[in-house]
Nucleic acid binder design. Sequence first.
DNA 1: ATAGCAAAATAAGTTCAGCCGATAAAAATA
DNA 2: TATTTTTATCGGCTGAACTTATTTTGCTAT
Lengths: 313, 313
Amino acid sequence: MTITQLQYVLAVAEYRNFTLAAEKSFVTQPTLSMQVQKLEDELDVLIFDRGKKPIAITEVGKKIVAQAQNIVNEAHRIKDVVDQEKGFIGGDFKLGIIPTVMPTLLPMFLKTFINRYPKVNLIIKEQNTESLIRNLQDGHLDAAIAATPLEIEYIRERPLYYEPFVGYVPKNHRLAKAQKINPKDLDINDILLLRDGHCFREGIINLCEVPQNFENANFHLQSGSFETLVNLADEGLGMTLLPFLNTLVLDDEKKKNLRYFENPSPAREVSLIYHKSELKIQITEALKDVISAIVRGAIAFQDVKIISPISKN
Amino acid sequence: MTITQLQYVLAVAEYRNFTLAAEKSFVTQPTLSMQVQKLEDELDVLIFDRGKKPIAITEVGKKIVAQAQNIVNEAHRIKDVVDQEKGFIGGDFKLGIIPTVMPTLLPMFLKTFINRYPKVNLIIKEQNTESLIRNLQDGHLDAAIAATPLEIEYIRERPLYYEPFVGYVPKNHRLAKAQKINPKDLDINDILLLRDGHCFREGIINLCEVPQNFENANFHLQSGSFETLVNLADEGLGMTLLPFLNTLVLDDEKKKNLRYFENPSPAREVSLIYHKSELKIQITEALKDVISAIVRGAIAFQDVKIISPISKN
DNA sequence: ATAGCAAAATAAGTTCAGCCGATAAAAATA
DNA sequence: TATTTTTATCGGCTGAACTTATTTTGCTAT
């Protein structure tokens, strides 16, 4: 058994196609096929069911693939061990960020980070929490920034900051006169939400303690950007909730419509998350340090109540 | 980097000698030397310091060796995955047992186990707790039976049973008239102890709440067997404490000298321990099930107080 | 110091594993 | 059935891993 064989197996498991897997592994298809067969012979089991289209993975196969991933991960880590000892921080680093954090947080730390660690090639992808987790697990991301707690096996969470929810209440709204608002005042039917798949949306639904299988009635126009939500609110279609950092970019006129929550303010916990195998842990630590240091000045709320980003149904 | 290279590195780390490591790896010395060098070249670090005798491991080397052990462990587990799927339980299984458990527990389960799992080749070694842990960590044992809790990183503990301490109080001893004894009655200077290195000895010292750096005064004859201790006690040299299972083999005359503790009786927790990488987990589980089932009938104490087997200094 | 010895490195030659290109077989699609 | 896509098989090549033989290194004892 060789590490190369295991990598071939992982490639086939990923692409469900020997030819494509061979391409991605930079070898010819016969080479990859033979090596996979050799491993199957050695273990004396079928890993893949070639009789189906696309190729299926047998029951044993799934476990072998999972274990192969472990081995390959551990093998990659040996490079990290050496890098760490040499104090070398560099190479590719794939970071995923959820959409509701990306536009506000990324500009805050990106410049500092690439200046401080010029040898690191940051590759940043915007994805929802579900995709982030999947990609962390199969090694397509080295780390991610998401709302927590997720409490997922194999994933470690390192909180970066706590970001309060802020109400955006247009004039004429029933809450417009209140100085501070309280979660009890909220009515989910009257709040403009991000489109499905955003964890910030789930957070708000949890905050409002809406029963299972809730359907936002009347109309279904759900946006992916807070800017749209704010504009819709101004049109009198309801209020909305924003993460604190998103309120900083509003113009003065709109800022007048902001209503903060009473303490403890509901908030989301934003964390750096990564696989527990701790591949490229030095870069991950460096990233955490940079973001923490920068965020510490800009956003330092203590008296908050963390709202879960997970849908309850 | 290949798994073979990593295994060679592990062999050198173990034997501190390329020639010997080569022998144990069933290759010639140049082969092993070259492969180790190739790995060093690839990682661009020195793993071993050949300038010393015996060969030393560099600082980075230690970390690489630890990581190599992880990789090799994970690689071996892939075989286990397949075996488990096939329902195959067999192969070598190296089990360590502490001396104070070995003679009483082993006869109870050995026959049943080898009958039920004829394909498993049990290799049993008697060792003190310290050696067991070392051997579990470097993979020379698959599992061990020891007194717990040890709370050692990388080691999992699965309690098998709780075994009360029983006093052996010869006639004419000051406690001979008591029906039940209490830890408060004990005087460490008056208790015959096993020789150093036995965790049962440490347990008793902990039970007596002896201050640090205690020295058992008067005489230093410390035995490795309970039989000797009992005979010495009969000679009027003091009392002693026995694990419950060891009291069952005493003759009727001697049994009269047994004094049980008041509830909750001090007891030791005896557990099956193994590396958290869970290599050969099916056999480990099988072993645990067999022992648990057998012990459940013979020894089922509930109201006990577990005494730590760890020395406090 | 230096001779002797144990152990690691180097050199040269052999074998076999892993790879490629070409092709055949099998499965899916039309 | 013909066509296309995908996987398996075959023959040949290259280099990696191994072997034996030899040299170098470093420790130890005279």
